[in-house]
């Protein structure tokens, strides 16, 4: 029997009723295998992320969940000697098809990193960077509006609106991470990938990020990698459990935490390993 705490967290986080109809798929993978050189790190991952839901990827360190996350916006392309087989569809489009453009893909699929990584520019320039790169909002007024909107979405506007031109590194760790979220939101992605976005933050900053994820869910599809099981239970709609590069099980979060279908999942959730 899994720990009762998870059930409590799930019930707290879910006051609304479940949607009746099955929502559209934002991301769908089929039999994805991934290799670093000759070492295979992902085995036949078939997984779907429904639109405007939060999908949590959990599992012990080195289970491949971050690698999987990065196959979804082709960030692994930047690592030499890697290879992928299988199909990854983002909003129905095969993103590894010959001729598919990883640059255009990354505009649609934002990524938030484990450690906040603002550029050594001002707060404003950080948020505006994606716009400039993609040739969006060329007029200054449009750009300023996009910067404000993104910072508001990221819940940072009120804290920084009077000092948009100060260096981003002057912000606290939690603020920096929300700035990175604002930066990703500025180019209006459809899907937001988060790679343990709160693992380096204190509990208060972490809860801000979690609240933010829940708010953003109404507009974006979110796929979040997390080590923190409570966090997955608190915020996600579906949870996928990875172990040694394989997807053990994926289920609605409440079900996975209270009544896991597989022995490995139960062992992991009850802390018998990992």
């Amino acid at each position: 029997m899994p720990d009762l705490d998870f059930r409590a967290a799930v019930t707290r986080a879910r006051p609304a009723a479940q949607p009746a109809a099955e929502p559209a798929e934002a991301v769908a993978t089929r039999e994805v295998n991934f290799y670093y050189g000759s070492r295979q790190v992902l085995f036949d991952i078939t997984l779907t992320a429904p639109e405007r839901e939060i999908l949590a990827l959990i599992g012990p360190s080195g289970c491949g969940k971050s690698t999987f996350l990065r196959t979804l916006n082709r960030m692994n392309d930047t690592i030499p000697n890697t290879r992928l087989t299988g199909v990854v569809r983002v909003e129905g489009e095969d993103i590894y098809a010959p001729g598919a453009d990883p640059i255009a893909l990354r505009r649609r699929v934002g990524l938030i990193f484990q450690r906040s990584n603002p550029f050594p520019f001002s707060i404003r320039d950080n948020v505006a960077y994606g716009l400039k790169v993609n040739g969006l909002a060329k007029r200054k007024a449009d750009r300023d509006a996009a910067v404000e909107r993104s910072l508001q979405l990221a819940g940072l506007w009120d804290e920084v609106k009077d000092r948009l031109d100060t260096p981003a590194h002057a912000l606290s760790g939690g603020q920096q991470q929300r700035l990175c979220i604002a930066r990703a939101l500025a180019i209006e992605p459809r899907i937001l990938l988060m790679d343990e976005p709160a693992s380096a933050l204190d509990p208060i900053a972490t809860s801000r990020i979690e609240e933010l994820a829940l708010e953003l869910k109404t507009r974006y599809t979110i796929i979040i990698v997390t080590h923190n099981l409570q966090q997955a239970a608190r915020i996600s709609d579906r949870t996928a459990f990875f172990l040694s590069g394989r997807l053990v099980e994926t289920a609605p979060t409440q079900q996975l935490f209270t009544n896991p279908g597989r022995k490995e999942t139960e062992d992991y959730l009850t802390g018998r390993f990992g």
Partner: peptide, 22 residues
């Protein structure tokens, strides 16, 4: 730092843009 390049690439920056603007 590598995470600066990654951050830029994740926002859809091309190699040239990463080199010149970041």
């Amino acid at each position: 730092p590598a995470d600066m390049r990654d951050a830029a690439r994740a926002l859809g920056a091309t190699d040239g843009h990463v080199i010149l603007r970041i």
